[in-house]
């Protein structure tokens, strides 16, 4: 007989802790790898958007328009649809459409444009005068990027990646539900489908804890680097 009452949430004897551990690791791995790629890709895209804003050159204007359009399109596609949409591409890129690896392309493609916008905003927040001062000192474009843009916007970049990481954790759960593994998969298959509410609750608590850990690390880092 299947117990579906409130009490069922607390039947922790039904939880398979070893597979829960594996699922936690998968979620963590998917999130960590995609954050690293998203941080780099989003930074580059954001920089491209920032540097091509308000240019007089028609070519650069066109580039800004194209990048901006791509960013907006991929930001608008609901994640669950994006995964399905990218399945054939995932098969080609990753060689599989099952497991944590297979979730990476859609995770990255959905989060990188989001982060790119945050990066662009962070760069626009920097005082124009500071950039002009660097230019007046004879700095090259690369020196301005690495010695001014990056350090001066670092707190915003870090809090942006924190926000992105947290929404990525949400995405991994969604991806998990359709076969990417991880806590989302566990909560859906072993919890919901098997009428095992204790598993669903445990997976939820672990995800919440992971979110808290990311938020805490992000907040701490921002506090340390912000000298304003």
């Amino acid at each position: 007989m299947v117990d579906t009452g409130i009490g069922s949430y607390f039947k922790f004897s039904n939880v398979d802790w070893s597979s829960m551990g594996t699922a936690t690791w998968e979620t963590f791995w998917m999130t960590a790898v995609s954050i690293i790629v998203v941080a780099v890709l989003g930074f580059l895209l954001g920089l491209l958007l920032f540097e091509t804003t308000d240019s007089d050159s028609l070519l650069i204007k066109a580039l800004n328009w194209i990048v901006s359009a791509i960013v907006n399109i991929f930001r608008s596609i609901p994640f669950i649809i994006l995964i399905v949409l990218l399945l054939p591409a995932t098969q080609v890129i990753m060689g599989t459409i099952i497991g944590a690896q297979a979730a990476l392309p859609s995770l990255i493609i959905s989060a990188a444009p989001f982060y790119a916008r945050l990066v662009e905003i962070a760069f626009h927040e920097i005082d124009r005068g500071v950039l002009e001062a660097a230019e007046a000192m004879g700095a090259t474009k690369a020196q301005i990027i690495f010695k001014v843009l990056l350090p001066e916007s670092l707190p915003a970049l870090v809090s942006g990646i924190t926000v992105t990481a947290i929404s990525l954790i949400g995405y991994t759960a969604m991806a998990g539900a359709i076969g990417a593994g991880g806590l989302g998969n566990t909560a859906y298959l072993d919890g919901f489908q098997a009428n095992n509410n204790a598993v669903t609750l445990t997976a939820t608590v672990i995800i919440v804890l992971i979110v808290f850990v990311f938020q805490f690390i992000g907040d701490f880092a921002v506090k340390r680097i912000d000298k304003r």
């Binding site: 005068g129 002009e132 001062a133 000192m137 004879g138 001014v148 350090p151 000298k227």
Partner: peptide, 19 residues
């Protein structure tokens, strides 16, 4: 840029790097 190295400039709002 080389010429700019030889010209110093100060600003109304200082324009220092806070970092």
């Amino acid at each position: 840029r080389d010429q700019r190295l030889k010209i110093g400039m100060i600003f109304q709002h200082f324009n220092l790097l806070w970092s």
